[in-house]
Design a protein around this nucleic acid. Sequence first.
RNA 1: GCUCGCGUAGCUCAGUGGAUAGAGUGUUUCCCUCCGAAGGAAAAAGCCGCAGGUUCAACUCCUGCCGCGAGCACCA
Length: 668
Amino acid sequence: MNLLELQYDLRKKVIETAKQQFSVELEQVAAEIPPKTELGDLAFPIAFELVKKIKQTTGEKKNPREIAEKLKAALEENEAVARVEVAGAGYLNVFFNRSIYLAESINNKPLPQLKLTEDENAPKVCVEHTSVNPNKAAHIGHVRNAVLGDTFVRILKATGKKVEIQYYIDNTGVQVADVVVGFVYLEKMSLENIKELDEKLKAENKTFDYYCWNLYAKVGQEYQTNEELKAKRTEVLHLIEEGNNPTAELSDYIVTRNVQCIVATMERVGIRYDLLPRESEILQLHFWQKAFEEMRRRGVIKYETAGKSAGCWVMPTESHTGTDEHEADKILVRSNGTVTYTGKDIAYQMWKLGLLGLDFNYNLFHIYENGQEVWITTAKKSDSGEIPEFGNSETVYNVIDSRQSYPQEVVKKGVGLIFPEKGEAVSVHLSYEMVALSPSAAEELGFEISEEDKQKSFIEMSGRKGLGVKADDLINRLEANALREVEARHADLSLEEKKKTACIIAVGALRYFLLKFTRTTVIVFDFKEALSFEGETGCFCQYSAVRANSIFRKLEENASENAIETISNSKSEIAGILEKENEIWSLITLASRLAETVAQAVSATEPAILAKYTFNLAKAFNLFYHNHKIITEENAVKRAILIVTADLARRSLTAALNTLGIEVPERM
RNA sequence: GCUCGCGUAGCUCAGUGGAUAGAGUGUUUCCCUCCGAAGGAAAAAGCCGCAGGUUCAACUCCUGCCGCGAGCACCA
């Protein structure tokens, strides 16, 4: 029996007892973890609720104490429960049988569901994340998106789900057009020139996406004064959308190179993809037409003949009221017949859910070091051999920042209206707030800050202005700082080993920094905080796990096995020791709550819940580490308990960190 | 104007309607002849934006107000 099963049994018992003893039907029983170990391991604040319900059904006014006593007796029947205390205003505090609990925990995996990922028939869900416009390098805000998405993928996988990861490539949008304008009209470059430039950059150890970053900012600045150049944007955009022309070919090269760079950047922090669907295919393979037909047939959209949106196809919404300036309804087809982004997104969402009845063609895009493949969509039939099955997911999670809540709502509602049998619940907008810069961080990047901006608590990053912390720059700085620290501690290691360790620490620092905030919090980026290895950081959690591992490196071989045997042979002694050791006991119970925490993170779609848990577990282990010396412990039974507890904690901590995409280095 | 999000310790943030509201950081003071101090211990620091309401119980739910942010494009 694991913790989740035990909690389930106890809840069931409360419900049964309430029905038998008081004829009250309880639908849900709230359980909570008491604030202190001395107050028990699980609490039911249920007595007052029962008093009310009993009064409602029978009119009889019961004493809460009396009710609690009845429940107490029922719960104590469970052999895993040592005792139950009635406390406070009406709490039912359950104390587990510590020796039985410990013996059970030893045999449990930290994440019991993990084995299910092997199951080919497991339901598949889709997570779309990153989706950086492929016209420049990724900045820290894009990394927040990718880390959130990737961590949520890992969390879903830990609960046994099969997950498909997509990075949507908006290769026919204005942002790409702007960079194309830059190359063609500012730099006067042909495709051949760009390819030569690319080679030259490679030789200089510079990257193409950084070049585009600067060029994009330059174009943005030029637009402010150069109307002629700005007019080129529409022209270029049309050519890109049309395809089969030199401009489209040039654009395709730029897009592909940027995607390669961004995929490489994300790979540095452990983020990988399965499929890169491109907007161009959604247009060329007539995904929109199919979706449009379906929407017309079901009467979900209407053609406006009068008013501001005359000549457009719109989807009516109730969530916004129209004003003089804005129409309430969302335009999906413009009066010139072209489709808006939201329109295309509805078609794409339908495809993801297996509801469109059309499919992409696919080409292999990249193979990661471990052999894992990333595919990209294509309009022409592919000549590749075995192609994996994409799309057709039961649920789709779109990781997109909160500024796009409204169009995402339209997509969700739209799909729900077209397919009422699927409903809106299958489309989940995993929204999060942006990463902004503190005025001082912006100044540190060498930007002139206006007086107006200096008054603000944060400044929004802007690709157009070239204002932002580039992902690779930050990772480089983290790696350099970590390398310095590793060198100071482990001069004996080879450079390669030191670099590898530094890299693991840098990834841990970055991922944890982005995950410790809840999704609704704007992260105001601060260099000092982001580059820190102390306090609530990934490094702290890794260090804790490394310490645990080093204990086991120093212990005799088979120490764990021997300890387990000792535990099973001396139950009464174990119970005696554990009863007195609340600190050890609370580490044991905390370590066994990983699966429960992962489940919470899924239901709240909030990876920060897991990050906080991981930090708390690391902290609890550090406390244990300082107060109990394992190697020098002379009492054999006590030593066995310490070994088993440390082992439980490090297994759980390692599993939690891995679920956050953070590795544990050998030494640090 | 309307919609959504956020106001919690000096600062940055956690906090499924439940017990004395917690972390990190900063400040002050301790602890390494080691299972590695990237650590630990202690102290100080709170009208949980304001005012009502619901409830046995409100930081948490509801209403109003104040402040901050984002959105309300035939951009994405």
